[in-house]
Nucleic acid binder design. Structure first.
Length: 549
RNA sequence: GGCCCGUUGGUCAAGCGGUUAAGACGGCGGCCUCUCACGCCGCAAACAUGGGUUCGAUUCCCGUACGGGUCACCA
């Protein structure tokens, strides 16, 4: 068989050769020692899974902390599954998390000189490489129909043979030039298959950066390289693209581990150096006592839209993901409270190798920690931005007087012991309802204290209340009215005394004032709240409270 | 079913032949305190299982169980 002749029959339109692509069109990258080139390669299904954020974060960190390149490649080789606007949905999702690319078809236009970065626009490139394989006798056209393939599958099931197109089952493997030419002239559709050099019983080994040594059977299947429409399969596109684009580390979901034998073989026949592989575990979900992959159909938290709707700040989600990726991150964060997460030295080889359960409680905790480090202004801005999208009523309150709103969040913030009771922006509504008259009724709590006694307390308090008091004076006055009410000015005193000696203590006095002004049993610093609210509003609320008792 | 991977407290996890088996989240108790929160102190809670190898196994090897993944002209 004359391979050159066959190649020309199959790919008469290919003028730029694989050799030229390798050496002239896409020259090797000149990068500093140790720089990693990584990539995120989604297919445009329009759905960004939290697992996708996880792997792209890992890719991004590896590239950027090593001074390398992080690129985006769109794997749109399956037209059936493509969703309109899928790419932009994924892009904007990632952008929302602050994950940025150096190369690819980005919002501002295509960046990088290894493009196109969308597989559907690289058809000629794949075909050139396929042509080269035909020339070397490593690829051939296969005219089998779906029915014939089904037939083969059934036979293999019966024979308990390895499934797939290989060995004696590979009918088209040894077609003559004449047969091929005849089929093509007859207009039969065909796919291009690899003539796998693998031997049955052969074993291969490779070292996964995350999973360590992995050993498996050598690939013997004549996998499809080019589908009947001339578009490559994932496997072939991966090998061609990642070698041409100079990817040094392929970091992807571990569902790919079983096809590494195919990929390594592809790099081998293509005469290209394979990248290092790092397979990251999926994020799991607990259900009925067992683990399963987070599913976009069943689990709302699988979609990144969930996090923006709930109002988790992007750093909260990112840091949570980082704690899943590298357990050392938490210790580092405790020791470096002020540094951005990008200062953390991420270790690929320190990643866990089995899937972690997604833990909302932990996310909550990490996110609260993150927000506690925000300035009041940042909390104010982010909360308003969130409310504008997801809670109009709250938005109208918060945006009315931004200075006032910023002061709300300044209470108990910024000091050594910042509050940590906001984990996400949707918590804001409950947190600050009593600062706004129209939200005041929300989350209202009743004091158990006798109504008459409460009236007395407020009556006494109103007499001494002076909005100009500083915090110490303010509190001294709380204590001052205690004796008149039959309350103990000190909690310790109250506890030490015989039961019945006092009706209560200072804490109970302030509890009544707190309830009158905020409608809550618990709030941050009352003095600060009263100052912010202003004396008029405070007095009004206390009077109204008395009326309603 | 074949092949691959995994299994340390409820969860995330250190550990890499000899440890009282870290730490974090969550839970519980306490201290601080005008309440809450923060902070601090403490408690409960784990090496899936059976064989080896070894003076000694959570750590190494084999089997079993369980869990996950994968076997397309999908990625």
């Amino acid at each position: 068989m004359d391979n050159m002749k066959l190649a020309e029959l199959l790919f008469p339109h290919i003028k730029i050769t694989a050799e030229q692509y390798r050496n002239e069109v896409f020259p090797h990258r000149q990068l500093p020692e140790g720089a990693m080139v990584t990539r995120f390669a989604p297919s445009p299904t329009g759905f960004l899974h939290i697992g996708g954020v996880f792997t792209s974060l890992v890719n991004e960190r590896c590239a950027h902390q090593s001074g390398g390149v992080f690129l985006l490649r769109i794997e749109d080789t399956d037209k059936k599954r493509e969703h309109e606007g899928g790419i932009s949905a994924i892009m904007s999702g990632l952008e929302g998390f602050g994950i940025t690319f150096d190369e690819g078809e980005l919002p501002g236009g295509e960046k990088g000189s290894y493009g196109p970065y969308t597989q559907s626009r690289r058809g000629l490139i794949y075909q050139a490489f396929c042509k080269e394989l035909v020339e070397k006798g490593l690829a051939y056209p296969c005219f089998c129909t779906e029915e014939e393939l089904d037939e083969i599958r059934k036979r293999q099931e019966r024979d308990k043979a390895l499934p797939g197109y290989h060995g004696e089952y590979a009918k088209c493997r040894n077609l003559s030039y004449e047969q091929i030419e005849e089929n093509i002239k007859a207009g039969k559709s065909y796919v291009m298959r690899l003539r796998s050099p693998g031997k049955p019983g052969g074993r291969i080994k490779y070292k996964d950066v995350i999973k360590g040594q992995i050993e498996m059977d050598e690939n013997i299947v004549d996998i499809v390289l080019l589908k009947s429409d001339g578009i490559p399969t994932y496997h072939f596109a991966h090998a061609v693209d990642d070698s041409l684009m100079g990817t040094t580390h392929v970091i992807r979901g571990d569902e790919w581990v079983p096809s590494v034998n195919i990929h390594l073989q592809l790099f081998h026949v293509l005469g290209m150096k394979p990248p290092k592989y790092a397979h990251v575990p999926p994020i799991m979900k607990e259900e009925d006592g067992s683990k399963r992959k987070l599913s976009k159909r069943k689990d709302p938290e699988a979609a990144v839209s969930y996090f923006s709707e709930e109002g988790y700040p992007k750093e909260g989600v990112i840091e949570y993901l980082l704690t899943l990726a590298n357990s050392g991150y938490e210790d580092w964060r405790r020791a470096n409270r002020e540094l951005p997460y990008t200062d953390y030295k991420f270790r690929l080889d320190k990643m866990g190798q089995s899937g972690a359960l997604f833990d909302l409680k932990k996310l909550h905790s990490v996110s609260s920690e993150v927000i506690s480090r925000f300035t009041a202004q940042r909390v104010c801005d982010d909360a308003i931005a969130w409310a504008e999208k997801y809670d109009k009523e709250l938005y109208s309150c918060l945006a009315r007087d931004r200075e006032y709103t910023a002061k709300i969040f300044a209470i108990d913030r910024g000091g050594k012991k910042p509050r940590k009771d906001i984990a996400k922006w949707s918590d804001i509504r409950g947190y600050c309802a009593y600062f706004f008259d129209e939200l005041m009724h929300e989350g209202r709590e009743e004091l158990e204290m006798d109504a008459q006694l409460q009236k007395q307390v407020l009556g006494e308090y109103l007499k001494v209340y002076d909005p100009c008091d500083d915090k110490d004076t303010w509190f001294a006055k709380m204590k001052e009215i205690c004796p008149r009410l039959g309350f103990a000015p000190e909690v310790k005193e109250f506890k030490a005394a015989e039961p019945g000696t006092y009706k209560g203590h200072v804490g109970d006095v302030s509890a009544v004032v707190r309830a009158a002004i905020t409608g809550r049993k618990n709030t941050p610093d009352l003095h600060a709240i009263m100052n912010l609210l202003g004396s008029e509003k405070c007095i009004n609320r206390m009077n109204k409270y008395i009326e309603n008792l």
